[in-house]
Amino acid sequence: MSKVKKTIVYWLLLLPLVVVILFPFGVMFVTAVRPRAELFVYPPRWTFSEFRWDNFVDMWVKTNFGGALINSLYVSVASTALALVLSIPAAYALSRYRFGGKGLYRNFLLVTQMMSPIVLVLGLFRLMVQFGLVNNLNSLVLTYAAFNMAFTIWMLQSYFNTIPRELEEAAWMDGANHFVSMTRIFLPLAVPAMVVTGLFTFINSWNEFVLALTMIRNQDQYTLPVQIFSQVAGRYQVEWHHVMAGTVLATVPVAIVFSWLQRFLIKGMALGAVK
């Protein structure tokens, strides 16, 4: 098949999926910019009379969107950092050393993957109460890091396996100790893998809902998913145009960063897989 022919066939095959994926984005956008009075028109239609950009401003002011954005950023960045700081040594050990209980440790990690936060939410809540962390964003940082660790350790370990041992051994010959060889030689090589796993953790934390709903009490501590949900749930009235404006603002920046970084994600998966 020529490249041109392939292009046509592939795009035709992908078209249904692409349409379904883009549909919610279209819904978000045309709802977010339409005047309030045109939310409920019958028969429903995509078109609307004017772009009402003020919706975004109104929404921002009315719903403390900025605060939620900062909270979400803080939680996602901090939990990503924590997950990486804890996962890197563990993955390094799994990749480089033999030690008793290695298999057990791996299985334990797999089991932690199996527990949904929902299933554990009550127990987690009691735990956070004991630490006085309820209504504190740090409770989310700790839990997100913990729930993501299994995956990050697994990813990092398979990647670390691809970094030749000889490099570090050469450094030891030169008199460097393990710590120095790890930080000077090994870690710089592992940066791509860290980006990938970090991105993965970041997305998961950014999107998490149930735990945030349970642990966070004050509105000024809400993360974005909870903030948006609270505008839909149990209200006497849902301001759909504001909800959609919020969703657009919460989604677009992540989608952009994500489209830029996704190539690394795939590369990371591929590299991690090469044994």
Binding site: I21, P24, E208, M244, A250, T251, A255, Q262
Partner: peptide, 20 residues
């Protein structure tokens, strides 16, 4: 095409559900 296929990942499930 890659970017489009990956897009749903960038929205939180809650928001996806709200939009749908």
């Amino acid at each position: 095409a890659r970017v489009i296929i990956m897009l749903p990942w960038a929205i939180s499930l809650t928001m996806t559900a709200v939009v749908w």
